[in-house]
Amino acid sequence: MTTRIAAAATLALGLSFTAGTAGAFEIESAGLTVGITPTVSSDYLFRGVSQTRNRPAVQGTIDIQHTTGLYVGAFASNVAFLGTNARQEIDALAGWRTTFAGVSLDLGAIAYNYPGYQHTAPGTFDLQYYELAVKAAYEIPSLPVPVKILGAFNWSPNYQLESGNGYYVEGGVEIGLPYDFTLAARGGYQWIQNNTRWGSPDFGNWNVTLSYKFSDFVLTAGYFDTSLSRSECFGSQKICDARGMVYLSRTF
Rank of each mutant, 00 (worst) to 15 (best):
T98M: 07
A221P: 00
A22G: 14
G244R: 10
S163M: 10
E131G: 03
S236N: 15
T39M: 12
I5L: 15
I110Y: 10
V72G: 12
L11M: 10
Y117N: 12
G83Y: 11
T226R: 03
Y179E: 13
E232Y: 04
A121M: 10
G35W: 00
R243G: 01
G187S: 13
A19T: 05
T61A: 12
P201S: 09
L15E: 10
N78T: 10
K238I: 13
V40D: 03
L82V: 12
T220K: 01
F81T: 03
Y44C: 05
A152C: 11
G69C: 07
Y44G: 12
G151K: 00
G95N: 05
R47F: 02
Y179C: 14
A76R: 06
A7M: 07
A74C: 11
G108I: 01
R250G: 09
I90E: 01
T226I: 08
G23P: 04
Y129S: 09
L32W: 05
Y138K: 08
A94Q: 06
G14H: 08
V145F: 10
I27H: 09
S156P: 03
T182K: 11
L161Y: 15
Y117H: 14
E170S: 13
Q160N: 13
A94V: 11
T84L: 10
V246K: 03
W206D: 09
G166Y: 00
G48I: 01
G204I: 04
